[in-house]
């Protein structure tokens, strides 16, 4: 028995070490792969944020990309020649998150009494309104041309210029956000959200203010979207309304569904699959989208609950690891 525990511990350590080494090796890859990794990390951040609303609170938000746009344009306004304001990156990161949260509350406050599909369509409309407004407010946003030449970002004196720099920044942020969301999920707040998802009326009957609860989910997820947008803006150093279409909102929802609703591990898997798939399909040239769509439908039909089983979540993994170390007999 003793040896098998040691073997399993060694196996676990090896797996962990392998993960760390793989993550550390990504920057050594050619720039194209690092860019793909950056893209995956951005979508992980967005999807984990949206998952608070869709997966935990059970509210379908089809206009999530609007908050991303708010963050990206916050960076464009506050760190470019557009208004000749040049604030440091870290300051804008917080401003972007705050702006996202405010936008979330402003949208959420009037509409959260709507249910189900009506809420979905109103958030969708909100996303479209934001995009069209950005597209047409020429004096402010340059309209469809977008704002180019945004400042090179730097963090605590370290420059953020190459995809490799952003890889580390995004990785750190993704880990922080996943960890925070994981703790939120296990807190009383997370339980209240889950109850809300299952039955709003019971939650209300228990004397919990459902509107505040929904608003909180909306604001937090919008803040994460806003922060993601700031990083996107500083990474691209160019923003235009084209990046914030309805299709982008749908892609983030798709990541959550493909991966597994309400499950951080699932969301990570979903982001990897949906970002890598179009890249892999480059060989198919004009057939790329067709194959992409067919794969998508096939995956959903074959695994309607998502690729990752709901049981295989972060707390399951952590429990496994802890048990193996503290009380090996239980595992």
């Amino acid at each position: 028995m003793g040896t098998s525990v040691i073997a399993r511990r060694a196996g676990l350590l090896a797996t962990l070490a392998l993960c760390v080494i793989l993550l550390a090796l990504v920057p050594k890859l050619p720039p194209y792969y690092v860019r793909v990794a950056d893209s995956i990390l951005i979508y992980i951040i967005l999807a984990v944020g949206l998952n608070l609303v869709v997966g935990y609170a059970g509210l379908l938000d089809l206009g999530f990309i609007a908050f991303y746009a708010v963050g990206a344009y916050a960076y464009a306004f506050l760190a470019s020649g557009q208004f000749d304001i040049h604030l440091p990156f870290i300051v804008i990161l917080f401003i972007g998150a705050a702006a996202g949260a405010i936008a979330g509350v402003l949208l959420g406050f009037p509409v959260l009494k709507l249910r189900g599909d009506y809420l979905a369509i109103v958030t969708l409309s909100f996303g479209e309104i934001i995009r069209i407004a950005i597209n047409n407010a020429d004096e402010l946003t340059n309209g469809p041309q977008g704002i180019a030449g945004l400042d090179r970002a730097s963090l605590f004196g370290l420059p953020l210029t190459s995809p490799v720099h952003f890889y580390w920044l995004l990785l750190a942020l993704a880990i922080i956000i996943c960890a925070s969301v994981y703790y939120m999920e296990r807190s009383i707040l997370g339980k209240a959200w889950r109850a809300l998802r299952e039955d709003q009326d019971v939650v209300r009957g228990l004397g919990i203010n459902t509107t505040t609860l929904k608003l909180l989910a909306f604001a937090l997820s919008a803040a994460i979207g806003g922060a993601g947008g700031v990083i996107f803006g500083s990474f691209q150093r160019f923003v235009s309304p084209e990046s914030f279409t309805f299709q982008e909102s749908l892609l983030v929802v798709l990541i959550i569904i493909i991966g597994g609703v309400g499950n951080i591990v699932g969301v990570i898997a979903g982001a990897i699959v949906l970002v890598v798939l179009p890249e892999v399909l480059h060989f198919a040239a004009q057939y790329r989208l067709l194959i992409y769509g067919i794969v998508l439908v096939t995956v959903i039909v074959l695994r309607p609950g998502g690729l990752v089983s709901p049981r295989f979540n972060l707390s399951f993994i952590i429990r496994k690891v802890r048990n193996l170390w503290l009380s090996p007999s239980k595992t």
Partner: peptide, 12 residues
């Protein structure tokens, strides 16, 4: 989401 995938399939 399956409908969304079908939309991509038909259009492409």
């Amino acid at each position: 989401l399956s409908a969304l995938g079908m939309s991509i399939v038909l259009q492409s």
